[in-house]
Every structure is written in structure tokens, then in C-alpha cells.
Computed example of a mutant assay.
Amino acid sequence: MDPKIRTVRTLVSKLSSVSERIRTDALSELRQLSKHDPETRPMISDSGAIPYIAETLYSSSHLSQDNAAATLLNLSISVKEPLMATRSVLDGIAHILSHHSTTSSAAAVQSSAATIHSLLATVEGFRSVVGSKREIVYALVDILRSHNSCPPRTIKDALKALFAISLYPLNRATVVHLGAVPALFSLVVKDGRVGIVEDATAVVAQVAGCEESAEAFRKVSGIEVLADLLDLATCASMRTKENAVSALLNLVRFCGESVVNDVREVLVDVVTALNGISDVAGHGSSKGRSKASELLKILFDESDGFSNSSVLSTETKFDSLNE
């Protein structure tokens, strides 16, 4: 028998020990194996470890929670199907995330949020399953609400998880109904860290792609905030500006003519935001340029006194932003 398989099976057999110390030591070793030796990940899964690891997420010991959550994160890189096929995994992750401010350790919360992103980033079919777990979605949103007391890494992993969930269009209404929009815009307005704002606006752009977002954006002056981000004077990063353009484009695509009018009026009022859009159209990524051009076309091609060319010509009045 392969020595690695023998080692893994021995460690997994110890996960059912009546001794907490033996279980803790075995799980700690499995965590290290799954981190440093990718070949062991399928072996750990095939040896029946996943249900034991998921059960450990309910432990009152922070060390046990940390080891279990980190091991699941490591496994999620290579053995996504077995994790998703084990119902207790998502239930355990939901438990950790839901108790982020009470009994769960900060490290376990971070690893659990990262696991959601890892599972969903490349497998579209899993997104509807996780999106139907309202406890997970609500907990991720609640982490954003608690951003003042959560480590930045946890906030970023929660944002990435929500982004992956929102890539599935039918999940977006659930994300909106569970309060994501005010939580996201609070981050954008109050958190000055570039990476956090970039990740938050990426999620904003996704959730804007459903008709339920219209009212939620109105309540937090979301269109105005996005326009401010596009103002070159704010010195927002190009990625943030591209996300703002994408959010406005999704709003006008999905939320009807009244929202088209709202966006148009705000952009006319905040004329410097138009220069931000033209900056993306001229200097952004290929996707960003395409979306900026489409947004300008939808808003102004058929409006009196405006056209793509007239909007783009205003760029010379302001210093352009160079990334």
C-alpha cells in the first residue's frame, strides 16, 4: 500500500476516537497534509474523513474549529464534488458563519467564507445550491455589517463568497432581500481601503443585475454613490470605476425605464462622472471599455443634447486617471 494512503487512513481512523486529544492531533496533521501535499486531498476524501471534519465545525474548541475549517478549505481546491455531496459540510459552514460574532473563531469564519468562494468560483452548478442556503447568504451579509469588528481578510473572503453566489442570476434577488445592498454601500462609503472597495463594488455590480435591486439602490442613494466613484477627483482605482460602470449598466438593463432615467439624470447632474465613464471607455480593460461604451449608448444616444461623442469630448476638461 502507498505510504501516503496508509498515513491518511491511520489519521482518519483517529477522527472517531473517544479521546479529544487524539482527534485534535489527527485533524491537525490532516490539515498540514492537505495544505502541503495536494496528492493527499483525494486520499483524505476517499478515506471517509469529510463527515468527521464537518462535524468538528460544531466543536466548542476554537482550535478544533480552525483545523476543521482550514482542512475543508484545502480540500475544496481539489475535491469539490465530494464536499458538495456531503450535506453536513454546508450545514457546518453555515453554523460557523452564523456565529461569527459569538462562538466561532475568527480563523474558522475566514476559512469557511473562503471555502464557499473556492467551491463556487469555477463550478457553476454549485451556485444555485449554495444560494438556496439562506443561512449562509444571510451570515455573509451580516459579516459585512460587522465590518468594524471583523478582520479585513474575513471581510474580503465574505465579499468574494457573495460575488461567487451572485454570479448565478437567480441568487441575486435573495442576496438583495437579505440586506446586502445597504451593507455593501456602507463598506464603499465608510471603508477607505482600496481592496475592500474594489471587492465590494464587484459584488454591487453583480447584485445590480436583478429588478429587485432598483428600490434597494434608491434607499441608499446607490446611483449617486456610483457616480461619485466615477468622478476622477475621487481617484478611485480603474477596477473600482469599471465595477461602477458595470453596476450602472446592469441597473439600466434589468430595472426598467424609470431607473434608466434616474441614472441619466444623476450622470447629467454629476457631469464629472461622465468623464470617469469615458476614462473607462478609453483606458479600461477590454470588458470595461465595452461596458462603458454600451452604458453611454443606452443612456445618451437617443437623448436630446447628448451623444457618445459629446460625452467623450468632456474628457479633456479633467485630468485623466492613470493606473
Score class of each variant (00 low, 15 high):
Val89Arg: 00
Pro151Met: 10
Val12Gly: 03
Ser112Phe: 04
Ala281Met: 13
Val207Phe: 09
Asn322Phe: 14
Ile277Arg: 09
Gly282Cys: 09
Glu257Asp: 08
Arg239Met: 11
Val266Asn: 04
Asp2Trp: 09
Val204Ala: 03
Ser64Cys: 12
Val12Ala: 02
Val181His: 04
Gly92Trp: 00
Asp304Gln: 15
Ala107Cys: 06
Cys210His: 03
Leu30Pro: 06
Ala114Tyr: 09
Ala200Tyr: 02
Val270Thr: 09
Ser310Met: 13
Ala94Phe: 01
His95Thr: 13
Val259Thr: 09
Leu248His: 01
Ser128Leu: 13
Val137Ile: 13
Val12Gln: 03
Ile277Gly: 07
Asp25His: 10
His36Ala: 13
Lys287Arg: 09
His99Tyr: 03
Leu15Glu: 01
Asp2Gln: 13
Ala202Pro: 03
Lys14His: 12
Thr7Ser: 12
Lys35Asn: 12
Ala227Pro: 00
Lys80Asn: 02
Ser166Arg: 04
Leu229Gln: 08
Asn322Gly: 15
Ala233Gly: 04
Thr316Leu: 13
Gly48Pro: 06
Ala158Trp: 03
Leu295Asn: 05
Pro51His: 01
Asn275Ser: 12
Val129Ile: 15
Ser310Leu: 15
Tyr168Phe: 15
Thr234Gln: 12
Val259Ile: 10
Ala214Ser: 14
Val176Met: 06
Thr272Tyr: 04
Leu187Trp: 03
Tyr52Lys: 04
Arg21Lys: 14
Ser101Pro: 01
Tyr168Lys: 10
Gly209Gln: 11
Leu162Ser: 04
Ala69Met: 03
Lys241Gln: 10
Thr71Glu: 02
Ser101Met: 08
Ser278Asp: 06
